[in-house]
Design a protein around this nucleic acid. Sequence first.
DNA 1: GTGAAAGCGCTAACAC
DNA 2: GTGTTAGCGCTTTCAC
Lengths: 343, 343
Amino acid sequence: MSRRPTLKDIARETGVHVSTVSRALDPQKRSSLTEEIVVKIRQAADRLGYRPNRIAFSLRKQKSMTVGVMIPDITNMIFPPIVRGIESVMEPLGYASIIVNTDGDSDRERRLTETLQERGVDGIIHTAVLRSDPNIVEAARQGLPVVTLNRKVEEAEIPYVINDEEAGIRMIFDHLHDHGHRRIAHLAGPRDLSTGLLRREAFCSVARDYGLSADALVIEEACRFEEEEGRRCAKEILSRSPETTAILCANDRLALGAMDYCARNGHPCPDKISITGFNDMPFLDLIPPGLTTVRIEQFDAGATAARLLVQMIDGCDGKVPRETVLPVSLKCRNSVLRIEPDH
Amino acid sequence: MSRRPTLKDIARETGVHVSTVSRALDPQKRSSLTEEIVVKIRQAADRLGYRPNRIAFSLRKQKSMTVGVMIPDITNMIFPPIVRGIESVMEPLGYASIIVNTDGDSDRERRLTETLQERGVDGIIHTAVLRSDPNIVEAARQGLPVVTLNRKVEEAEIPYVINDEEAGIRMIFDHLHDHGHRRIAHLAGPRDLSTGLLRREAFCSVARDYGLSADALVIEEACRFEEEEGRRCAKEILSRSPETTAILCANDRLALGAMDYCARNGHPCPDKISITGFNDMPFLDLIPPGLTTVRIEQFDAGATAARLLVQMIDGCDGKVPRETVLPVSLKCRNSVLRIEPDH
DNA sequence: GTGAAAGCGCTAACAC
DNA sequence: GTGTTAGCGCTTTCAC
């Protein structure tokens, strides 16, 4: 359990100064040294099993080679692929990630943001941001590189990468309409999350394009993106508007909840009612009847956000784009039934 | 984007020495200072928005307040709950976790172990260890606190927390036997993982207790804990031993794969064949017909491992227990059919 | 009760 | 080409 060797140990071992050792071990500066001494130093380093101390490096360089990744909850299956996407670009560059779960708790988020800053993270990828989010805005204002993922914050110029919500909703609405559905309800997400709002707005806009008047639209808003809320809202929709033939849900978990409620209450999907989701989370294909949904490339989204963040950290060339919109696609399974349009 | 304030800034502001500021801000040592000056310093700190620099702290104290968490792959749904369990004890204690994915790649694991050590982690929780795993053994030998989770490594005295594999296999075997099954095949996990081996051994041992001779046992071993391997092995079992009435799988993913293969090849579960899993991963309840499996408390396992690790780091009282075995329970769903025993 | 000084392991001016 | 020196922000002896 002997202490890890330091530059000083190598210096003593080889009889040179620590700064020489430091240079010899830095690929950038190696060139300014004699070949002979470099070899000697590297051999000594290998022999002693030297590993650089990144903490000392961080303190000196004011760069921790660490980024913070804020997510609502890693047990929500759409996040692990995002995390892997981030890792796929960060790790090869030598960055480590500290992943924290906010649980959608803004107080907790504030504390975690502070913790990350105390730990000197070089930047933050935030996948749990609210449309209005003073904590992260303040951090960004102080000069910390931040990029938000999946959601955007409205009060600041923080770069974000989102999916093409509008296109996704349009695809799925078209799909329902093509299958004869005219009485399409929207099970909306929370209004304080940008995805919730964006998808709702897209729904209204597409409905308008199809000539449905806004006040005829039945929309029920979930408080959280959770199955339980899906059940509650499905119940609401069914009782308020029993003639509904399809429920377009703002995400998969809401759809799963809605499907469960409908199945238990004499409206099995797809026979009695068609239901659609959004996200295409893992394992959805194994759950009957197979939710038709909008596929989002979570891994790519993570990787894209990571690339942006690195650009901001390196602060190299011009500004990074404020907005990055990733393409989505329709994933047809079996939760949408073809029916005769009733008009 | 002004630089974050340091102790020096507060010292200048209040006209005292930095060491005094340091003491005033340390709850432990605050007592040795005048009440008056402590108040003045704390006010100045608040006014400037001082946040301690944990990197400097780490360098000085040789303690990073960071632990490494090695998992095979965070997108495997059994791991997120473990991560949250670890976090639930680590975060309140001020520890952050760096989570890394090994992808079961031993080379990658070695690199990651080194990276974690360079970053000065105070300990490692390893959920992806092989039965023989020189990398982590070497790290532990050098004095780094390590605890393994779900699996154990055989060549060293590294504390581990595992689930009661033996009891789990026994429960599920009993359950199958109670339902009349006598021709029970085992779809085993990889032999180089302790769970794979332990569950296989338990299977053989229970079978022996039931008077089944070892050479009559049909066992097919998967190379990885993945659906694809489950399909392959199910095919093998069905062709080698068509009279099989039940397949006891070493984990849920293998079971899902087996179920899929059987369904597609005229052996729907549970009507033609009964299948069981192990782990009770999330969302299993939504996948028909509902896999009967052994429930593991992943969150608790993570929390337990974290508690052990903290004990080791604090190096306080006596040694931590080498072995911690967590209880498991039977989770009955609908993948096991009651049949007439054929003898 | 408070200040002075050293040092954690490293990098980067600046000398020579 | 290599050594000297200073310093990143903090804690901790040791003085007084």
